[in-house]
């Protein structure tokens, strides 16, 4: 696994890294030095999310110790916003003449996948899903099918960026809180909207566990625009009594009722929300899964990231229920178990 996020997740020990917070309603990634990962000649044209995505993918491959490249499957809700914005503007500024092709090429949603394949000389299966809160999750489903079909491993991930301009655009349709909100106090500020975020997260998935495995995915369900009852039934059918719940709760009063359904279905089970760490974005679920994987393997919770959590957290946990939704439309539940 590997993650570039607004927290110190790329290098070092996450169990001691201090929590990064903001009151700007926008959590931006901590960017690493890309040079050890990407040759200078390739780096010069790449925009931010391409660098973030490619570097996370490469670090994930390093982390897995796997040297033969396999299928690459990713999800992204928005792709490279910087390049899309730039190309739209250059079309206007230069009146459709003398346009550099680079922003157009890089605005293509599968450009990060192409770069990973190119750098890894990987000619296997390659696919990119672009469906809001189901982008990463469809990549995950695709990868699990590939493993079923006989692939020994997959590189599966997600990447997303938020630009100032896109933050403003989404503020016009109520995506973000109107008042500046301290990210540490996200869950006590109930009002419409949440805080924005971004990040890249990659996983190596295999069909057979090893001593290096972080976690096993033992349950997975996606639900599109379910009613409250349908969600409740699905959650209850999905699992009984996990040791811990990781939830996508984000302080948005408009869609809080789905998380209340979760509370009702699993009363008394400790919950850790993660959006104060990474912000809300289409593929934030991948960050939540990464966090769960870290915790299951280390059998430890990065306490410094959850100062508000007064609940009694278990010392050992073997199973985690992950539940997240994106603006009430795409709902995802995953069951993770210790290997």
């Amino acid at each position: 696994m590997a993650a570039i996020s607004p927290q110190s997740t790329f290098e070092g020990d996450i169990f001691s890294a201090p929590m990064v917070h903001t009151d700007s309603n926008l959590l931006s990634c901590i960017e690493p030095d890309y040079k050890p990962f990407i040759p200078g000649n390739s780096l010069r044209r790449m925009t931010r999310v391409l660098k973030i995505g490619l570097t996370t993918a490469l670090k994930c491959i390093q982390d897995s110790g796997i040297t033969t490249p396999g299928p690459i499957v990713t999800g992204t809700g928005k792709g490279s916003l910087q390049d899309t914005e730039k190309f739209i503007k250059e079309i206007a500024e230069y009146k459709e003449t003398a346009l550099n092709p680079t922003p157009f090429i890089q605005s293509t949603y599968n450009s990060v996948n192409g770069l990973i394949a190119l750098q890894q000389k990987c000619t296997a299966y390659n696919n990119t899903f672009v469906h809001r809160g189901f982008s990463f999750e469809n990549a995950l489903l695709d990868s699990m099918m590939l493993l079923q079909e006989g692939a020994s491993h997959t590189l599966t991930g997600a990447f997303e960026e938020i630009t100032k301009e896109h933050f403003y655009i989404k503020s016009r349709i109520g995506f973000w809180k109107e008042q500046p909100t301290d990210s540490r106090a996200l869950y006590t500020h109930f009002s419409p909207g949440t805080i924005a975020g971004e990040g890249a997260t990659f996983f190596t998935l295999t069909g057979t566990p090893s001593s290096d495995s972080y976690a096993a995915i033992t349950g997975f369900k996606m639900l599109y625009k379910p009613t409250a009852e349908k969600l409740s039934v699905a959650l209850k059918d999905f699992t009984t009594a996990p040791d811990l719940i990781i939830s996508g709760r984000n302080g948005d009063s408009t869609y809080e009722h789905y998380y209340e359904t979760l509370d009702q279905c699993f009363q008394g089970i400790p919950q850790l929300p993660f959006k104060h760490l990474c912000g809300e974005y289409d593929t934030a679920g991948a960050f939540g899964l990464w966090l769960a994987g870290q915790m299951l393997k280390a059998q430890q919770i990065p306490q410094q990231w959850f100062p508000f959590s007064t609940e009694h957290l278990p010392a050992n946990f073997n199973s985690i229920l992950f539940y997240n939704h994106f603006y009430g439309e795409q709902h995802v539940m995953l069951k993770l178990e210790r290997v």
């Binding site: 044209r45 003398a98 550099n100 092709p101 090429i105």
Partner: peptide, 22 residues
């Protein structure tokens, strides 16, 4: 310099933007 075909397109854009040669 190790440039590639995308750079060549960008250099043609340079000629067009800076020197007005298409």
């Amino acid at each position: 310099l190790g440039l590639d075909s995308i750079d060549s397109l960008e250099l043609m854009v340079l000629l067009e933007r800076q020197y007005h040669i298409k």
